[in-house]
Design a binder for these strands. Structure first.
Length: 491
RNA sequence: GGGUCGUUAGCUCAACUAGGCAGAGCAGCGGACUCUUAAUCCGUUGGUUGUGGGUUCGAUUCCCUCACGGCCUACCA
């Protein structure tokens, strides 16, 4: 108790004095009639110096600024809709009540009742006739002008970040709008939202290391899903034709400005279409979301101005490697490829499988150039064990990934629906795994069984929601768009 | 995991280059002020300088350890 900070001790003393007056400082004392925003709406009827008679409003908010002025005081209170100024005068509410008001601090929640007027500078203000304490704040808030700058504290105490930094709440509101807009778009297209297991016995549908957990009663290890893909395809087998899931994936990999261990994905599957159709769907979805959430179809990301409403570029994976890395994947030998990789990506450690080497070259040499909206299409078969091969070139698959401003935003295929071929591809993956590729797929016998019942030709698309939000909010780090990013504990 | 930069009052930052009593603004506290809004004016409290060690007469400052974080990089999406 003795090491309690002075600022907190003083606030606790004020709290005690409030309680001694028989007041419960954490109770709901009355219902509000107006939000800050609606007070401003009402105030449009009056002009400077005028009082809006015949209307008493009750507003509740957090005190964010205080300007004492003799035996009167101006303050701003904030609710979810915005800020409103209040004006308290000792001779209007009585000396005793004014004394109670002086026990309040910045950060406290109060409710006020009173009439609306406009000050001589024209600011909408509530002339307080009565107030109540709704919650006493014991922690001092950050600096009022500069806010909370400390990045670590912003992430650890996001609630303070939201209070102290004005642009944080709008950003996360926009994130919500983007997701609801996406849902509306997909519902409008006839897609049905479904939920599939987060805990899986065989983690599949992507190349990544999983988190392991344990079910005590079944005495069995389970994996947090790295992707919902194989379950969503089972539902297509079951007869659903248009489904999607927006939910968390978990990947036990490094953390960076583009990676958080848990992240939010859209995955959708549509029967009887191919990846070409999903490219059109992607273009349309991005434009509709941008229009609904930003009011325009152009975005600016880290200095790049991007127009979304146009036909996005298509560039084949092989051509992209040819163009930026000067390697012809169709003729290069494994040895030549390894030598090129050493030159282009000297920091690469893993040189085991074809997939890893080509992937490394692609990410290092090609991706930074993909600023304009671009679909990279037709990836080599060995990189995509769940994708259908192209009709005219069996070395390539019908796959695309959308890129904007060097950000990989998703992944899509015409899904492989031949059970026997899928089994062969899984067996190839197991070979890669034995060569040291720890992210190669595992055999999922039940998924093969599902395909054996017959999956219609289907295309699937995944979109990384966090990265989409980064792009739409001009955020340089994924942690800026995740409310509670993963951090190490302090002790 | 590797590299690099950072950690000073509740918050935002100085002081470190070249070792010599750790400062300011905001917030807080006391006072003046009944149309202020970065309110103003007067006064004032608040520090184990992230942790542990080393060098030194003396360390916020130089060296090392560890912790946490940012950025780059690797893995990955």
């Amino acid at each position: 108790m003795t090491d309690e900070h002075e600022l907190i001790r003083i606030r606790k003393e004020k709290l005690k004095k409030i309680k001694e007056q028989g007041i419960d400082p954490y109770a709901l004392h009355f219902r509000r009639t107006h939000s800050s925003e609606s007070v401003h709406e009402c105030a449009k009827k009056i002009s400077i110096g005028e009082v809006l008679e015949d209307l008493e409003v009750a507003v509740i908010g957090r005190i964010i600024t205080v300007r004492e002025h003799g035996k009167s005081c101006f303050a701003h209170i904030r609710d979810d809709s915005g800020d409103i100024q209040i004006y308290i005068k000792a001779n209007a509410i009585g000396e005793k009540t004014y004394g109670l008001f002086k026990l309040l601090d910045i950060g406290d929640f109060i409710g006020v009742k009173g009439k609306i007027f406009k000050t001589r500078t024209g600011e909408d203000t509530i002339l307080v006739s009565e107030f109540s304490i709704f919650s006493k704040s014991l922690q001092p808030l950050p600096e009022k002008r500069l806010g909370l700058r400390d990045i670590e504290l912003k992430y650890r105490r996001r609630y303070v970040d939201l209070i102290a930094n004005k642009d944080i709440k709008p950003l996360f509101k926009l994130r919500s709008h983007i997701i609801s807009s996406m849902r509306r778009f997909l519902e409008g297209k006839g897609f049905l939202e479904v939920e599939t297991p987060m805990m899986q016995q065989i983690p599949g549908g992507a190349m990544a290391k999983p988190f392991v957990t344990h079910h005590n009663t079944l005495d069995m290890d389970l994996y947090l899903r790295i992707a919902p893909e194989l379950f969503l395809k089972r539902l297509i087998v079951g007869g659903f034709e248009k489904i999607y899931e927006i939910n968390r994936n978990f990947r036990n990999e490094g953390i960076s400005t583009r990676h958080n261990p848990e992240f939010t994905m859209l995955e959708l599957y549509q029967a009887f279409v191919d990846y070409e159709d999903l490219m059109h769907l992607t273009e349309e979805m991005f434009c509709v979301i941008a229009e609904e959430c930003l009011g325009k179809t152009s975005i600016e990301y880290q200095g790049n101005k991007i127009e979304l409403k146009k036909k996005w570029k298509r560039l084949s994976f092989v051509d992209a490697i040819k163009k930026y890395a000067k390697i012809d994947l169709e003729s290069v030998s494994d040895k030549e490829l390894k030598n090129s990789a050493k030159e282009l990506v000297p920091e690469i450690r893993k040189m085991n499988s074809f997939r890893e080497i080509v992937d490394a070259i692609f990410k290092k040499v090609v991706v930074p150039n993909l600023v304009e909206p671009t679909f990279i299409v037709d990836y080599p078969e060995r990189m995509c064990p769940l994708a259908k091969k192209k009709k005219d070139n069996k070395n390539l698959t019908e796959r695309f990934q959308p890129y904007i401003c060097g950000i990989e935003l998703g992944n899509a295929y015409s899904e492989l629906n031949d059970p026997m071929e899928q089994k062969e591809r899984f067996l190839d993956q197991i070979k890669d795994r034995k060569m040291g590729d720890s992210e190669a797929h595992l055999m999922d016998e039940d998924f093969i069984t599902a395909l054996e019942y017959g999956m219609p030709p289907t295309a699937g698309l995944g979109i990384g929601i966090d990265r989409l939000v980064m792009l739409f909010t001009n955020s340089p780090s994924i942690r800026d768009v995740i409310l509670f990013p993963q951090l190490k504990p302090l002790i």
